[in-house]
Design a protein around this nucleic acid. Structure first.
Lengths: 224, 224
DNA sequence: CTAATGCTATTTGTATACAATAAGCTGAGT
DNA sequence: ACTCAGCTTATTGTATACAAATAGCATTAG
């Protein structure tokens, strides 16, 4: 990670994830080069990678912009995610090791603690949630599948969806994770896949509902 | 497509697809630059794209090699393909237009003609087969889904699988396409998805069987 | 006032030179 | 003969200068 292009990649990526570079913003290679303290060459390299990962979009004339996801885009991404993760869960059910299963339980236990606190510890929830899901991908034993899923989940909007959860949805997440563990424990791929599908789709609707509430006032208030 | 990096991309890609650059071969940027008549800069650009599309792999020390797919890799790819195309078929069933349906029929009619000739016209089969499948992706209305599928289908090994088909398998393909058209005509997504899954999995096994026959003589003859 | 055209400034694309790094080879020491 | 150090060569990474293309603006004709 000491190569200049790697530094540029990480730097730009984290600026996008943190919101420092806002969706829709045009980004110029030279400006990024100065921000990263390298020349344009490694910046271009990093931009190509980020473009492949859907962090960056380019228009017809090759100008780069921070990706801006519409609600439709997000729904499409969540549908793909539901399909991919359900498939991964199905595969994982027959491949997961006892050790992995134990780690799954411990992450979900940590999630329980995070949401049982007086004030829910969202960062802790997010962290263990991420580990929980990536452990399932690992157990599914398909590098290509993991790569595809990353394309639709490692995006600022997608990662921010959980911030919209109320306590009710946090609890539901925990319980669905419990049921996934049960399905894995029984080596029941169909069960695991069904629970995972429901889990992801509920997550999307929790976000969509909160989002609708945030931008409500009917169709008139969308510009506000 | 007149930019140097685009020319380099197309050139290298077609050299890989044609087998001129064989799987496993190490490729040097400068050599490619000479072959393409451009400098290393656009070649590096092209290599990054081809790497994202799994045409190229790089080792720990950044050397590039033409991707070499094992039979396990291929099976994994076909499983993903079956899932993705089945999902696309399901979506397409409720979205396909009458015009698209008509074009689907005409491509499959052309396939029928290609395999009815005294000597089956494989290139014609492949061409219409490709159009048939991409039309379904188009009708599914998800750019992201199409992109993911391309990752696992637009690969030399995957594209070559159909070359292993005997007449029996060519006919089965045609009939499965017919059934897909019927499912679409009835707007039956579940039917379409099931037929598509079977279609892709049969395709894989047709290849795997032919491949096993080609490298048979038990475990002893693998080096031959 | 509108629209189209040409100019200018901005931004990306390409070539090339040089730096850094990894691989391969040679030769000495055991 | 074998191995490992050190050197040499091959290959990729980075910076920079310049070329090409694009967008935005102003100016002018209708």
């Amino acid at each position: 990670m000491s190569r200049a292009s790697d530094r540029a990649y990480s730097h730009i990526r984290s600026m996008i994830l943190s919101g420092e570079l806002q969706p829709g913003l045009q980004i110029r290679e030279e400006a990024l080069a100065e921000l990263c303290g390298v020349s344009r060459t490694p910046v271009r390299d990093a931009l190509r990678r980020l473009e492949a990962e859907l962090f960056i979009r380019r228009n017809e004339s090759q100008r780069s912009f921070v990706a801006d996801w519409s609600l439709d885009d997000l729904e499409e991404a969540f549908q793909l995610r539901a399909m991919l993760e359900a498939y991964a869960a199905k595969r994982a059910a027959t491949r997961i090791s006892w050790d992995q299963l134990a780690r799954l339980r411990s992450h979900n236990e940590a999630i329980k603690q995070a949401i049982s606190a007086a004030t829910p510890e969202i960062p802790k929830f997010l962290d263990h949630n991420r580990h929980f899901h990536s452990l399932i991908m690992e157990a599914s034993g398909s590098a290509r599948l993991s790569g595809m899923l990353a394309q639709v989940t490692e995006q600022p909007v997608v990662m921010r969806t959980a911030l919209q959860y109320d306590l009710e949805n946090l609890r539901r997440s925990h319980h669905e994770h419990e049921e996934l563990v049960m399905a894995f424990n029984n080596r029941d791929g169909e069960w695991a896949a069904a629970v995972m599908t429901a889990h992801i789709r509920r997550a999307f609707h929790a976000y969509a509902d909160a989002h609708a509430r945030g931008t409500e006032m009917g169709k008139a208030g969308e510009a506000a």
